[in-house]
Design a protein around this nucleic acid. Structure first.
Lengths: 347, 347
DNA sequence: CATGTTAATTGCAACGTTGCAATGGTGACG
DNA sequence: CGTCACCATTGCAACGTTGCAATTAACATG
């Protein structure tokens, strides 16, 4: 009993091959399973000595509560589900988001299950499945729309969730979002300070709330700065890289072309640059460009290209922390955060 | 439906809110829970009529077996775990892998949990955790090394797994791998057919089996073709984009520079192109380039750049199918596949 | 008619956990 | 000395599932 050195890495002490359960500890300490269970979960009505004995024994045998047992008894899954959007506008978005979540649940009981979506539509099927089968304690969804049906469904069911992106629902829900308005504003200001008089903004996917926010902020900013601001109709951007490249070519050839471009997607930025270069333009001469950066792809190729960073890794962590607090019962309206664009790329 | 002999407990079919269990069906059909369970799992010793009745009732109430119950009783988790490598050499690798896995388990009982690794080292911690806690029925690992310790651990424990990448162990295990040798060979041949006499190959991460395979095949190919083949020491490639860019610049300025370059990573290809362009070279003139393509990033910018495609999405699906067969007891040595480089990018 | 054979179904226990009611033991108070 | 309140601990049941031994019914066999 006086042993203290055997830190259960792997399954050091205890029976070989057999997993430690409450019973193991119960037999080891001479206490009942109920007491052990209670003690491990911080029962208040226990003798100090008992708690110590249990804690020691648990450590010695490397006890970890069986997930199936807990889940069956309590309904708690200790799982959070990420509904992974099908699109890939933001390069490396999925990986960073997952890494961010992973870091946030590290060392906790929680596991992450990922459910990929195969189309970018705010489809309700996946969420309904999770709801019907109680397959997670909470859900993270991304790329929300103003009246996102998934959000509606989750709110109706009063199920813990957090969205990456805001909505326009009156009822409050937990979210974390990139401050797109700040992005649009800062981008416009920077271009203006470089002398630009006519800005063009490319924004895709008008189904997201983000789209609306960014457009509004852009118009405000250009109005305030007293310069011309044009939005590139998102319908024209649906067609994929080729069309955007063509757009870049058109712009390069136009006499009355904008002298500053803002782009909210790395994929589109790449295609656009391709087109501009096809048209004989060089970056930073003839037209200024600034884009929303989510990966270190573009700097690899264009180190001097100006950008504003959205840190998806950190966002993943923040979303997770919010969700866990939501699962623990905190009120949704206290779980809403915006991140300003980061000044620098994460090292 | 015939025979409504329910005990009048007053919970109609499809009762709101309450999940259907075996008990529900049992009460509905008048059969015992054992029979229902047996029937649903295809018991052979049952009357045809019984099976039909059970099946109908199950469908009517939308029965789905409770995961926790099954898991507790049988130990089967119906989960497959993806250990997600920390690196990001292959742009979009994680997303495509996950999508591929997702498609393969679609409609099945299986869920996917993702465990991100934060360093690219074949670290054994994650796998040990899964093993100790029986947290999944099978594991997918990627970026294997010749004597990968994770593989060793999994084989020792006789735990179902499949690796994306081969190893050099004598004992056989399930794997699926990109045919790097074919990549190296085809790439060399294509460059040779364009008249190149001196090839340079950039391969990163010499800790993977892949590295070894590709180098060997490259040397064979250049020898056979009667041209010069140089390998860029991977140590020099560790430093990140800046150093590779510098390398590109150096190459561009050298008089005796190689006239054909093969690159196995999109990130490095980008950095290299940056350097070559800094040095005043234009793509396809002065030096030919061919790279291993895993995303549609580069074609967006350089549509005419030659590439050989590794289809990670399909690989994810294949890995999953192999793993599921392994979980079902098929022998490892029958579960080994290689994919030839795809002729075209997936549409 | 007792006995064996087979087919179809069932009861029971167990997986590991937790909530709750119940237990026994202590001391204070009237 | 009986009653009450309190403390620390315990036994039991239940969550939903499945494997196995046991049961029933029907029917043939000796």
């Amino acid at each position: 009993m006086a042993g203290g050195k055997d830190k259960g890495s792997g399954n050091g002490a205890g029976a070989i091959g057999q997993r430690a359960t409450l019973r193991t500890i119960s037999e080891l300490t001479g206490l009942s399973q109920s007491t052990v269970s209670l003690s491990l979960r911080g029962g208040t009505a226990l003798k100090e000595e008992t708690r110590r004995k249990v804690a020691e024994a648990a450590k010695a045998v490397g006890y970890v509560p069986d997930r199936a047992g807990v889940r069956l008894r309590t309904g708690k899954t200790n799982v959070i589900a990420l509904v992974l959007d099908g699109g890939d506008d933001s390069i490396d978005f999925a990986r960073q988001m997952i890494q961010g979540i992973g870091q946030a649940i590290r060392g906790s009981r929680y596991h992450l299950t990922v459910i990929p979506e195969f189309v970018r539509t705010q489809s309700v099927e996946t969420v309904r499945y999770i709801l019907d089968n109680r397959t997670a304690d909470g859900v993270i969804i991304t790329h929300t729309g103003p009246r996102d049906r998934r959000v509606q469904l989750l709110m109706d069911a009063n199920f813990p969730f957090v969205s990456h992106g805001r909505t326009e629902f009156f009822t409050q829900h937990a979210y974390h979002d990139f401050h797109s308005e700040a992005f649009a504003t800062v981008a416009a200001e920077r271009l203006a300070s470089k002398g630009c008089k006519h800005l063009l903004m490319l924004v895709g996917d008008d189904s997201t709330t983000n789209h609306h926010n960014i457009v509004t902020a852009f118009h405000h900013a250009t109005a305030r700065l007293g310069i011309v601001g044009t939005i590139m109709d998102s319908a024209a951007l649906r067609g994929g890289p080729d069309e955007i490249r063509q757009l870049g070519l058109d712009i390069a050839r136009r006499a009355d072309r904008p002298d500053g471009i803002i782009c909210d997607s790395e994929m589109r930025t790449l295609a656009l640059i391709g087109g501009l270069q096809d048209g004989g333009l060089k970056l930073g001469q003839g037209v200024e460009l600034i884009y929303k950066q989510t990966s270190d792809i573009l700097p690899t190729l264009f180190p001097r290209l100006d950008s504003i960073v959205e840190d998806v890794f950190t966002a993943g962590g923040e979303l997770t922390r919010l969700l866990l607090r939501r699962i623990n019962g905190e009120a949704p309206e206290t779980l809403q955060t915006l991140f300003e664009p980061s000044p620098r790329w994460r090292s």
